[in-house]
Design a protein around this nucleic acid. Structure first.
Ligand SMILES: [Mn+2]
Ligand SMILES: [Mn+2]
Ligand SMILES: [Zn+2]
Ligand SMILES: [Zn+2]
Lengths: 134, 134
DNA sequence: TATTAAATGCAATAATGTTGCAATACTAAG
DNA sequence: CTTAGTATTGCAACATTATTGCATTTAATA
């Protein structure tokens, strides 16, 4: 973490360390609500500011599924970029049973060719059943 | 609209007609905020309830892009289903220039095969530049 | 037209997210 | 080590988005 933060020119503080460690502890993507429940004593504003900064620095990224709660996950090597240019070659998987969301690497990330639209990047969200729940 | 609402067992009211017509008027997906700006005299609660019901009945569907405002669009023939089972064979395209979001039909909707995950359906969100802005 | 179930409008409240600002903590220069 | 300067935090206030309960109004249909 120290190395990553240094690279991103982000100061390591007690609060940021705690939040970062929550992301590390859970392999799946987590919601703001869940993070709050993991923190005992905390200031909500500082949390929002921390998460916003993590996103801007490309430390975490947002994952959205229609009709589902927004989730957050640590960036991988392929997507450590800021909010504007954030891009990744992995998909997001939502399990309908356990409701967990995972970042999943896939061998051949699909390429999309559209007439009338110039495609710069795509996001793929998959839904179904994860291995644990199958 | 009368036929659609009848099929969905939804009463046609003045307010619902107005909201539905806003969706018909704009070909692209629109935000709740935008709908509010199109309505002159309206009750916000009724609007939320109307949109919720439209979603549950499969009259409209949600479109989400990470870091972007949530949008709504009319369902097409292939996706007139409720929130839980909603499924479509079209993708969503977000133009980085004009910020519009479009539902776009594609000839061969990709199929995804994952080890460890049973995929029931996928959502594809594309970003880039639309024809108008190119 | 009368009956009845559904939809609406209003008030209250909850949940989520942001801004300004003073106090505090950290960093780096001298 | 001390100090000046900058970044972070915590608090209060506020903004935005969404939901619930309930009395009133409206629509469907018999
Ligand atoms: Mn991811
Ligand atoms: Mn669509
Ligand atoms: Zn699962
Ligand atoms: Zn455009």
């Amino acid at each position: 973490m120290e190395a990553l933060f240094k690279e991103k020119k982000v100061r390591v503080t007690a609060f940021r360390r705690t939040v970062y460690e929550i992301f590390e502890k859970y392999k799946s993507a987590i919601s703001v609500n869940f993070i709050e429940s993991e923190l005992k004593d905390f200031d909500r504003i500082t949390l929002y500011r921390t998460l916003k900064m993590f996103k801007e620095k490309g430390i975490i990224h947002e994952i959205t599924f229609p009709y589902k709660e927004k989730k957050l996950a640590l960036c991988k090597e392929d997507c450590k970029d800021n909010t504007e240019t954030h891009n990744h070659d992995h998909i997001h998987f939502h399990c309908n049973q356990c409701k967990e969301v995972y970042c999943v690497d896939i061998p051949n990330f699909p390429h999309l060719n559209l007439t009338n639209y110039q495609v710069d990047k795509i996001e793929i969200q998959a839904m179904g059943t994860c291995a644990k729940c199958a």
